[in-house]
């Protein structure tokens, strides 16, 4: 069972607000899903060497466009901006 405290910690970790009134319900839903995925505990995977389906692929970091081409478009997409800068809440 996921406790209320664990649920609050999880919400903080995920940066997703979960109002006090919804904590129990969301915890119950996560519990039910975790109960279902616990079926994997029936499988012994000790000897299994993970065979990754994917590998990291890197490519040359070439400049795809000229600096500044998308400047106005991208700043216009910001929730808040000032003088061509992103405007964000104070960090410190």
């Amino acid at each position: 069972m996921i406790t209320k405290q664990q649920m609050q910690d999880l919400a903080m970790l995920a940066r997703v607000g979960v109002p006090e009134a919804e904590l129990d319900q969301v915890a119950g839903e996560i519990d039910a899903i975790v109960g279902y995925i616990d079926i994997l505990n029936t499988v012994n995977v000790e000897d299994i060497v993970d065979m990754p389906l994917q590998v990291n692929v890197t490519h040359a970091d070439a400049n795809a466009t000229t600096t500044g081409t998308y400047f106005d478009t991208l700043i216009a997409a910001a929730p808040d901006s000032q003088d061509g800068f992103y405007k964000v809440p104070k960090i410190l």
Partner: peptide, 28 residues
């Protein structure tokens, strides 16, 4: 503050199922 902005943005920006999956993913 910044933290509350993050929390509120994701709470109000996403529906229940999306929030649930973010929480579940963070959990696992």
């Amino acid at each position: 503050d910044l933290l509350e902005t993050y929390m509120k943005t994701k709470y109000e920006g996403f529906g229940k199922e999306v929030r649930r999956r973010i929480l579940l993913g963070t959990y696992v």
